[in-house]
Each structure stands twice: as structure tokens, then as C-alpha cells.
């Protein structure tokens, strides 16, 4: 089962290396990891999607990460009412013949074209992983040249913030 963890860490150099190193050393299966600044200047938030076969694996991931001095807090968002999103940029081959069709797909997915030239377009899409996977599948027929995805970020609904949980 996939679990989404929000990991609040000190905004210091080396923290992300430390976390990713620990994850690989302990042989945990990580689907994605995404880090960025937060509402507090000295805190970074890392969203980790981890595949855990049972509760013990998840318990180990959380406990081992919690031991790191620079990890302030870990919240398992999995069971919570939450919003999660990923951003993808996709470079697709677009000839004059196919461009209209591609734009059509872009429209349906509420994506945007953020760059266009004679040969390709770059499509920007946000959404859950499934949605991005679905669009990639459709665009594949036209020739995908490059995909870049951010990995999942997640936030709980309602007024309470993760650091207060």
C-alpha cells in the first residue's frame, strides 16, 4: 500500500541527502520524494510516497526518519482527508497535422500549452498521478520526447496545518 508522508525538516544543507540516503540504505521502496520551502523560512517540507507492504514497514520508515536530528515532524497523510497533486511537463511531437488533436486533448485534461515550435509543444499538467498517467498514455501516440514530473505533494483539507497536528 502507498503511504504519503509529510516530513517537516530543518532547512539546512545536507538534510535531503541524509533522508534519501537513509531510505536507500534501509531498503525502503520510495515512489517519489518532493521538497520545497514552506511558510516558515527555517523549515523545509518533504513529501514522500512510500510503498509499505505492512504496518511494520511503515512504522520502521517513520521511526528511522524520526531519529534524524534535523527531522522535526512526520505526519502520515494517508488516511486523512487531503489534496494531493503532481506537476508534469511533457514535450510532445506536434506537426501541423496533429497539433489540433493534441490541443484537444490538452483542453479535455485542463492542461496548458506553455511552449510551441515547429516540431513540438510543451504541455503543463497538474493533478493526481492517475490523471497525468492517463494524459501521457494518450499523448504517446503523437510521440513523447521528454517527460518531467515533480512527484506528489500533499496537504490536508480543513483549517489545521500539518505542524499543528
Amino acid at each position: 500500500m502507498k503511504h504519503t508522508l509529510a516530513v517537516l525538516v530543518e532547512n539546512k544543507p545536507g538534510v535531503l541527502t541524509h533522508i534519501s540516503g537513509l531510505i536507500s540504505r534501509r531498503a525502503f521502496n520510495i515512489e517519489s520524494i518532493a521538497a520545497g520551502y514552506t511558510e516558515e523560512p527555517d523549515m523545509t517540507r518533504i513529501t514522500i510516497v512510500v510503498e509499505a507492504d505492512d504496518e511494520y514497514v511503515l512504522e520502521q520508515v517513520v521511526n528511522q526518519l524520526s531519529k534524524l536530528i534535523d527531522v522535526i515532524k512526520i505526519i502520515d497523510l494517508t488516511g486523512q482527508d487531503r489534496v494531493h497533486r503532481e506537476l508534469a511537463l511533457i514535450k510532445v511531437t506536434a506537426t501541423p497535422e496533429t497539433r489540433a488533436d493534441i490541443l484537444n486533448i490538452v483542453e479535455i485534461f485542463r492542461a496548458h500549452v506553455v511552449d510551441v515550435n515547429k516540431e513540438t509543444v510543451i504541455v503543463q499538467l497538474t493533478g493526481e498521478e492517475r490523471k497525468i498517467d492517463a494524459m501521457c498514455e494518450l499523448l504517446e501516440d503523437y510521440g513523447i520526447r521528454e517527460i518531467v514530473r515533480t512527484g506528489r505533494i500533499a496537504i490536508c483539507r480543513g483549517p489545521v496545518s500539518a505542524k499543528e497536528v
Binding site: E59, Q60, N63, Q64, S66, K67
Partner: peptide, 11 residues
């Protein structure tokens, strides 16, 4: 003293 030791090897 280390919560991560519990259930690491033996349940």
C-alpha cells in the same frame, strides 16, 4: 530507548 528498534527485526 529507541522506538526504531522495536519491531525492526523481531515483532
Amino acid at each position: 530507548i529507541d522506538a526504531a528498534e522495536v519491531n525492526k527485526n523481531v515483532r
